[in-house]
Amino acid sequence: MSETTPPPAAPAAAPAGRTASDIKRDPLVLVAVSRDWEAVTDAKEFANEITLIVDRARIVSVCRAFKDEGFSYLVDLSGVDYSKYPGHAGPRFGVVYTLYSFNANKRVRLRTFTDENTPIPSVTDVWKTANWHERETFDMLGIQFEGHPNLERILMWEGFNGHPLRKDFPIRGIDTGARIYPEVFPPGGGPKPGSTGKDAKDVNIFQGEWNTYGTWPAAQIAGQRAAAKTQQPAAPELAAVVAETAKPTQEAPWHNPDLQLPERMKMAEKGSLKDKLFAAMAQTDCTACGWDCEGYANAIATGETKDLTLCVPGEQETEDMLKKLMSAG
């Protein structure tokens, strides 16, 4: 415990303080860099690894020069979102190429910068292996590659709306719109309009409506109810389910979990105390209280229960509203 810990030592060996021009003259890269001296705008060195900053428009010719000089193996290609990097100025994204030369037995890193809208020339013609790497970089960061034969998503699914490794993408994820019941949630995917991921409702986690898994969700029932009105239901079981579950919705327009509490209260303002209590519930029929929403309202109104804190999905606002209604009425 008491041992004094030395600060992390400076990266070993690297002759510290070489200027960009010196690094560009390093024998490892000199021949390749000298083909287009101006294309390499800057050079850095850390932990004995050389990083060359390359002009975006000339990245393909620089890569080809390196390949001709023995860097036949593209180890890795990835991107970095520098938008939250302390002290970073300039375009938002960096694309990083790690090259390896079998003859020199050394690696070199190239980096080029771009923003959201400017595509980077693809190096798939130089190395075949760049294909999937560029697709992954596009998928994860939204960097466009010009001239890529098949630039589509690779890890996320087609239609996913977002680029997960961007710094403004929330770690909790976003609501992608993917649901079990396409009748309820229309196809097309994508997060809800204006979703930021900061609100719990934006996040693709349990929202209460998943409780309808195994039974029929409200909209589907509503559709069946409409069908039931016009024609006789074929199967008696179906008729029973429709009749039972459709009943509250017929008389209670507020029985819809998508409505906000003030809206629901407004709809029920002319109704009885039971109706107002019913409208204050979260309308998910989650049965956490022991009843469905109507049953709980009924139980409070008839004095069967005095506990006003049982509505879990309604949270504090339902509880407050129930207390207000009970103290008023």
Binding site: E3, T5, P6, P7, P8, A10, P11, F46, A47, E49, T51, V75, D76, S78, V80, V96, T98, R107, R109
Partner: peptide, 29 residues
């Protein structure tokens, strides 16, 4: 003997090892 709090200096490295499947590399900024 290193610090308990790991806060590396500013920089970037690529390091790879021979995993049973091939070159497993980590690029850390």
């Amino acid at each position: 003997k290193i610090s308990r709090v790991i806060r590396p200096p500013e920089g970037e490295v690529y390091h790879s090892i021979e995993s049973p499947k091939g070159e497993l590399g980590y690029y850390i900024v």
